[in-house]
Amino acid sequence: MVQSKKQRYLFLAFCLVPTFLMFALFTLYPLVNGLYYSFFQWSGSSSVAEFTGFDNYRKLFNDEIIPATIWHDYFLVITKIIGIMILATFFAVALTQMRIKEAPFYRIVFFFPNIMSVVVIGILWMFIYNPSLGLVNSGLEFLGLGEWTKAWLGNEKWALPSLVLPSVWAGIGLFMLMLMGGISNISKSYYEAAEIDGANGWQQFWKITLPLVWPQIKISILYIIITTLNGSFIIVQVMTKGGPNNATHVMGSYLYEEAFVKYNFGYGATIGVMILVLSLITVLIMQYFMRREKVEY
């Protein structure tokens, strides 16, 4: 049976058009419109949106909290990359190359936090950091380091670093598995050749494993950057709401506060544009720096 041209187009439209309309309405239109909103002063009641040109952007550059939120975001990006990549690489190598019998157990356990809700993770860790009941302070007292105990999340200096641990805790499994996928694709013969040449475990790791899993490492780092810049505000909102005294505000949580708590929707959209621009620039820069000739032996 040969379909007529009209029938063919009808089927194509049936497949593509309804979905694309929904996508355009609920994803593309809001993104473009967000850009448009950033040029308005608007408190939400629809009649009084006032066009103010670049005023919101001027405000953005003079807002003292903005540089702090950017720094907090990048602090989380950097510490998460270091923490997750070191641990995930170590675990991935250990589980693929050390012939550990119970490896599947570790794989299953380490991955589980990746599918837990950020709300559950956040609340769990709020209790772990709880000044009087929490595991961290009781652990420190048990070790005789009682003077180190503090109200972790209520302390301006320590609140932000305290958010790193839950993020690493929750993220490691996924990246470990991505790296394990890369390592198990490396041919055994490279290691055998290296053995014969007398290379020790460290040399094998630096000269064989690391260069050959570089694509996976690169993807992991980019993925951490994207998910942190686009999502760090969720754990901030659950655990500290940006406090104490703005010490943990990241760009996204500040946007939420400006737009949905203080009803400065125009200014909120301006912060959103900043988030978009910064994360695109960061990803492009990182892609440039991490480009590396494909290694082949």
């Binding site: 694309f20 609920f26 419109n33 909103y37 810049l229 949905f260 959103g272 988030i275 994360s279």
Partner: peptide, 24 residues
């Protein structure tokens, strides 16, 4: 083009879109 459009939406921070989405 359409495929790329859908896929690149995975990398775009949606926070910006949430304000207009609220009013929509």
């Amino acid at each position: 083009l359409l495929f790329t459009l859908y896929i690149s939406a995975m990398m775009i921070p949606m926070v910006l879109g949430w304000i207009p989405l609220f009013f929509l």
